[in-house]
């Protein structure tokens, strides 16, 4: 049980969290769900996941802010992050605001191609 890699899924759409939870667990991962950036960061600190799937535009604290806080934290800055987001303009905005910082390891536009997503996850945390 404990040798399973842990994925933190952060999205304000409960259906997205539920689906990705089932999907990742089915493929041999452990999951944690969070519904905004604040909760996401807290759970990351608490449970030290191996990978984070992060939405950008969320009610409450956004994905941009959470990503920044992750990079500022010595404990968490090396956790790979995959963006899973709905809007392309927000994605551009995300990169503009973080242009001096490390880019996330991957990004997927909703609706995601689940096989591609899994491939990326397996690549990052085999």
């Amino acid at each position: 049980m404990s040798d399973k890699k842990k994925i933190l899924i952060v999205d304000d759409e409960p259906d997205v969290v539920e689906w990705l939870t089932v999907f990742f667990e089915e493929n041999g991962y452990q999951t944690i769900g969070a519904y905004d950036g604040k909760e996401g960061f807290e759970k990351a600190q608490e449970q030290k996941p191996d990978l984070i799937s992060l939405d950008i535009s969320m009610e409450g604290e956004s994905g941009v802010k959470m990503y920044k806080r992750l990079l500022e934290s010595d404990d968490l800055k090396d956790i790979p992050v995959i963006l899973v987001t709905g809007a392309t303009p927000q994605l551009q905005n995300f990169f503009e605001r973080l242009k001096d910082l490390k880019s996330p390891e991957g990004f997927f536009e909703k609706p995601v191609d689940k096989d591609e997503l899994l491939k990326k996850v397996q690549e990052l945390i085999p």
Binding site: E13, D15, V16, E18, W19, V22, G86, A87, K110, P111
Partner: peptide
């Protein structure tokens, strides 16, 4: 229209998820 597209993407995500869970 931009807002609408965003909304539809989220719904598509939900539909995709439902389909996946039923088939699984």
């Amino acid at each position: 229209v931009a807002g609408l597209a965003h909304s539809i993407k989220n719904i598509l995500m939900g539909l995709e998820g439902g389909k996946y869970m039923i088939s699984l």
